[in-house]
Simulated scan of single mutants.
Amino acid sequence: TEVYSDKSIDKIGGSQSLIPDIKIEKSGNLNVLDNASFEIFYKDFASVLPIQERVTKETLNKMIRKELLESGVDTKFEFSVYNNNLATNVKSGDFKYNKEATYSIPVFTDNEGNSKYQLLVTFPQKKKFLLSELVSITILSIVFTLIIIIAYSSALNQLIRQRQISEIKNDFINNMTHEFKTPIATINLALDAIKNPKIIDDKDKVLRYLQMIKDENKRMHAQVENVLRISKLEKKELDISKESNNIHEIIEDAIDHVNLIIEDRQGTIKCDFKAVRTTVLINDVHFTNVIVNILENAVKYSPNTPEIEILTENIKDMVIIKVKDKGLGMSKVAQKRVFEKFYREHTGDIHNVKGHGLGLAYVKRIVDDHNGHVYVESEKGKGSTFIIKLPLIN
């Protein structure tokens, strides 16, 4: 192929030889030219045929399905060939035009690249297919997100629990140290006093100091027993044999144990026994300790003169025991956690009320072991009511 400019052509009549401005040379087999000319001829011939004679809907269906499967699209489709925006007979049976789910492309272009035919393919289940493709990724994302949330929540919960345990442990150690420090100091002072030559000959004073030593030793022993009792309960080593007992007699026995403490505080205990059926299957020693612990708490948490009321009543096959006081009361949070081991509600000074948070934990374990229920109703500044429900012996 040679390309000449106008200036070159003007020189044809002159003496100068004709030289092309651009010269393009290509070599190849003549078959290529034959094929090209056949393609041009075929397109011209085919363009005059009706569309249904050029392609059948079965052939077109197979071709579209094959292409879609190769592209990973395995869903129902419908198709139609349009001629200048008018539908032809080459279409699937359920084809309906849907703007959002229909795609079109020109087909059967002529030798100049123009086409009067459009192939329209629609996907009736497009949204379902897209969702099914995304569902596995979505499920995995949700699972991983849940795992992360659970792991984070668990770690945060463990961190909070560890912090609470640390605070409880420090509280317990401080209280236990304080509880032992006072009796030890008292015992040492009593011993030093007895050694004094002026006192050792005074029998009454010696006996008083010896009684003081005995009382303080008994006090420390009781604290140790309290800790060991809880430990044995948790290991299920505490032997709890149960017998038929009158609950009113158990309550009266418990009152006798705390009478001295109440008299020392100039307090009062009122009993209102309305329960008619009072026979329960309990361990008298442990259940006496339960009532004693609740009464001691009522005294300890009454900043003024303790005013305690004990009531009993029958509801169905249960006997209800209520121990009311007019003490400090407790918050809603404390009411939920008051029966936890070592838990004590902070009231400003850590030692303003002696104890280790073991008494009510012991109460809970013993009552549960007797198939009963124990809970507390309280209002800050207005006192508390401990309620015990026990099954009666029919």
Rank of each mutant, 00 (worst) to 15 (best):
I165G: 02
S166T: 14
E167A: 11
N170W: 02
N170F: 04
N170K: 07
D171E: 11
F172K: 00
I173Q: 01
I173F: 03
I173P: 01
N174E: 10
M176I: 09
M176E: 09
M176Y: 05
T177E: 02
T177Q: 01
T177L: 05
H178S: 14
H178K: 06
E179M: 09
K181H: 14
K181R: 13
T182K: 01
T182H: 00
T182M: 00
P183V: 09
P183S: 06
P183F: 10
I184V: 07
I184G: 00
A185I: 07
I187F: 01
N188E: 14
N188P: 04
N188I: 03
N188D: 09
N188G: 05
L189T: 12
A190G: 02
A190M: 02
L191E: 07
L191Y: 08
L191K: 09
D192V: 09
A193W: 05
A193P: 02
I194A: 10
I194Q: 08
N196L: 13
P197Y: 08
P197I: 09
P197M: 07
K198E: 15
K198T: 15
K198L: 13
I200T: 13
D201Q: 14
D201R: 08
K203W: 03
D204Q: 11
D204R: 11
K205L: 12
V206M: 07
R208K: 14
R208F: 06
Q211S: 14
M212S: 09
K214P: 03
E216L: 04
K218V: 02
R219L: 08
M220Q: 09
M220F: 03
H221K: 05
A222Y: 04
A222G: 06
A222L: 04
Q223G: 10
Q223W: 10
V224L: 15
V224P: 03
V224D: 01
V224W: 03
L228Q: 01
L228W: 00
L228P: 00
I230E: 08
I230G: 01
S231Q: 04
S231K: 01
L233T: 05
E234N: 02
E234G: 03
E234H: 00
K235C: 12
K235N: 15
K235R: 15
K236T: 08
E237Y: 15
E237H: 07
L238F: 11
D239W: 06
D239Y: 07
I240Q: 01
I240H: 02
S241R: 05
S241Y: 11
S241V: 13
K242Y: 09
E243M: 10
S244D: 13
S244K: 06
N245K: 15
N245W: 03
N245Q: 10
I247G: 02
I247N: 01
I247M: 06
I247Q: 02
H248Q: 12
E249M: 09
E249W: 06
